[in-house]
Design a protein around this nucleic acid. Structure first.
Lengths: 227, 227
DNA sequence: GATAAAAAAAGCAATCGTGCTGGTTTTATT
DNA sequence: AATAAAACCAGCACGATTGCTTTTTTTATC
């Protein structure tokens, strides 16, 4: 992928759905193609993004190339560049999709299980073990030295933080009393778990320590909770 | 760098100092070149490794190429390959050197400052903000999908853990009473701080939260301490 | 000072990834 | 069924990187 960063600064929205702009409704001379072809396009785009995610997990960012992604998606490279003007655009779209996935998983976990600190901590930890997070981390790491990726990542991080904040305060409204401790709890949870998840990827943490850390974190958050 | 992984499995020791094998001492017909040229060789190797570290920090792993490293070191690419048979070997040697740097910084911090929990936490945090850790993280991330790098990283991680463990227990011998809590404290400290350091690199954590987390961690460790 | 070895530089072929262009098939609408 | 617009595929040319080989320079010892 890669290629030296340049000017860029593509609007984030455009990346999310470059696809065929669906004309509103009718129009005399205007051809109003509803969305039958657009659906296929969207599916193909999704397939490419999924393939990109798998490649990031399997080969890592540095070895994730456009031919590999196309092959993984079962498409030709030409078709791929028809949907994404460049390999970089694909990566940016992938980053956005990864964020959506993480947020979806979050909300899902919050809906099904009952809302106590333990389940929420466990739910997040479970998320960090999935490919989605691994791929996200690959891109986040690359974004440190890739201006365009960084520009895509920034709003993503903001949204993630906000959504998580919202969700957590929705589940535990009593925490509204002390937002200071609330933020601390979130920061604690996120950084500790993510750090452990990352270290785990390359044997940087003893497997037997994990459970103890999880339990301790839960205890900590409980003690930080207001009433 | 990169290039598909193959067989490899080079002994780690060899990577650290491939240089000219210094003959023991004397020997009749044996030419006993002491180490005058060897010193220069070692210096050049060090220069290359330093250049590699700077490249990792500046460009990230995926864009760290042999020409860039050679340029950064002020050497020709030919000279570089004279000291390291391949770009990958350089990366492996760099990984080992980074580990040494981290351990050195550790011991240094332990020697100068007085030994209380706060200073040790702060010392580690300070380490995580330095280029050494950034470069290390680039290589650790790459190692996840690079077998050879992973083989180099494994003993590195083991040594780091052991040394840190030794040092900490040396500074706080009272902790020997409860190794369980001791391990927990170390895991807590390492994963939380590293996670925060990594998130910080791409604006993944609010700057104002950092201080609160640090203080909370210190408090936590103090409460985990035996007497 | 001569000489041999190491260090450094320069050059070479091969490979690979990228972006793009031209052409083919599919799909949707009239 | 015709047609136009997509989705898709194959192939090209450029640039970059890699590992290796060959040549020059430095350096150390006799």
């Amino acid at each position: 992928m890669a290629k030296d960063a340049a000017i860029a600064a593509t609007p984030v929205e455009k990346l999310a759905e470059k696809g065929p702009d669906k004309r509103p409704e009718k129009g005399v001379a205007e051809r109003n193609e509803p969305t039958l072809q657009a659906v296929k396009s969207a599916k193909t785009r999704a397939r490419l993004i999924e393939a990109a995610i798998r490649c990031l997990v399997k080969h890592g960012y540095s070895k994730t190339t456009t031919p590999k992604v196309a092959l993984e998606a079962g498409l030709s490279r030409g078709a791929m560049l028809h949907h994404f003007d460049s390999g970089r655009q694909l990566m940016q779209a992938t980053l956005i999709e990864l964020n959506k996935k993480r947020l979806r998983a979050f909300r899902r976990a919050a809906e099904t299980k009952e809302h106590n600190v333990r389940t929420l901590v466990r739910a997040y930890w479970a998320q960090l073990l999935r490919p989605t997070f691994i791929a996200f981390h690959e891109l986040a790491t690359a974004a440190r030295t890739d201006k365009e990726l960084a520009e895509t990542l920034e709003p993503v991080r903001v949204e993630f933080r906000e959504r998580w904040h919202e969700l957590a305060i929705e589940l535990f409204p009593e925490w509204r009393q002390d937002l200071r401790r609330f933020d601390l709890s979130l920061a604690l949870c996120q950084n500790l778990l993510e750090g452990m998840a990352l270290n785990r990827l390359t044997n940087g943490v003893e497997e037997r320590d994990i459970e103890a850390v999880l339990e301790h974190l839960e205890q900590q958050i409980l003690e930080l909770r207001p009433s």
